[in-house]
Design a protein around this nucleic acid. Structure first.
Lengths: 190, 190
DNA sequence: TAAAAATCTTGAACTACTTCAAGAAATTAA
DNA sequence: TTAATTTCTTGAAGTAGTTCAAGATTTTTA
């Protein structure tokens, strides 16, 4: 039932059968409907979400009232606001399901208890965070060095199937240009 | 001698006296001269650096031949290319000392050995990476939502003393605008 | 301390994007 | 299956920045 999470963990650290028993006894799968939020700006983010199936995004609303997506998460990704989660401070972000999504949601007390029972998971979450930070650095590099059109084609090359899963305006904001400009890029009018 | 690192670790996890002994026996302080590189694009990054004193930066050279700073690191920061370090793949980045800098450099074999001897440090490095990722998310938010002038003033407010430590053109590229535009912002000509 | 190197400034011309507005198309809900 | 909602497209006008070039200033090195 939680196979995708166990597989993901075991890419990075080994799990004993007893560890798996512990996890099976305390995890649960939850469903989030498309467009529902699990975090709103101003709330303290108390939960980490592992996406089993579906797609979520982290976004902000800018001063013009437009949504800008900072991060997408799909199968086998963790999504949370780490700063809010770690420091118990209000979040700057919204986190929302883009598709009907199944997640394993782990709130802070449960996470603390799991990490005490299975210390090997500290290493797992270390690696997850280090990879996420590395990816964020690459993302900033691409934002700095590529034109809007290059970012669009580069993203499509890296994620050929993903583009169809989200509305174009969400992807446009993730790549830091306007939805209208995305339209023109796709039409070859630029 | 390694007090600043021990203090930093103990902000997040407790250390036994025996842990400190282990660390003292295997760490060493090294000095990096201003402008010297510890990583060049294309090399595999095999080392993590804890900055005891001074300032370093991670940067790229874009297609026009201009340097663009992705990250600064100052006292009590870790700096490395995590993706290259984790996956043993060539780095996209340069890492260079901006000032004469003292670091504790830990290469991968040593890091592995330290983490086996002091498993509590897995949690420490997990928290370090989670905070770094959280900060990167905030950085992307600011890049997305603020004008060049707002980014400059915001950065100065958050880091009032830092601005004097680096050449303006490095800070301009970190904030994602040109050195010339920075000049105009500072002169109030915009 | 002088020379060399690095950094900063300025204005003019340019451009990669944004904004706005309104209609068309596609998707979702009743 | 129709209505409602969401998403996408298009062109025209505007603008926040870049680029270039050259000189001025500051910092570093010898």
């Amino acid at each position: 039932m939680y196979k995708s999470l166990f597989d993901h963990i075991q890419k990075f650290v080994p799990l004993e059968p007893s560890d798996i028993n512990i996890l099976e006894s305390c995890l649960e799968l939850s469903k989030i409907k498309r467009k529902d939020h699990v975090l709103q700006e101003g709330q303290v983010c108390n939960t980490m979400y592992f996406i089993v199936k579906g797609c979520m995004r982290q976004y902000i609303i800018n001063s013009k009232g437009t949504e800008q997506t900072l991060q997408f998460g799909i199968e086998n990704w963790w999504i949370t606001d780490y700063l809010s989660f770690l420091n118990h401070i209000p979040s700057h972000f919204y986190i929302q399901a883009v598709e009907n999504t199944e997640v394993i949601a782990i709130d802070k007390p449960l996470m603390d208890s799991i990490l005490v029972q299975i210390p090997a998971l500290e290493k797992y979450f270390k690696i997850v965070a280090q990879k996420a930070f590395g990816a964020a650095q690459m993302r900033i590099k691409f934002l700095f060095t590529m034109s809007a059109e290059e970012r669009y084609h580069h993203f499509n090359n890296l994620n050929p199937n993903f583009t169809q899963r989200v509305p174009q305006y969400m992807l446009a904001s993730y790549l830091d240009f306007s939805a209208e400009f995305m339209s023109k890029i796709r039409a070859g009018k630029v």
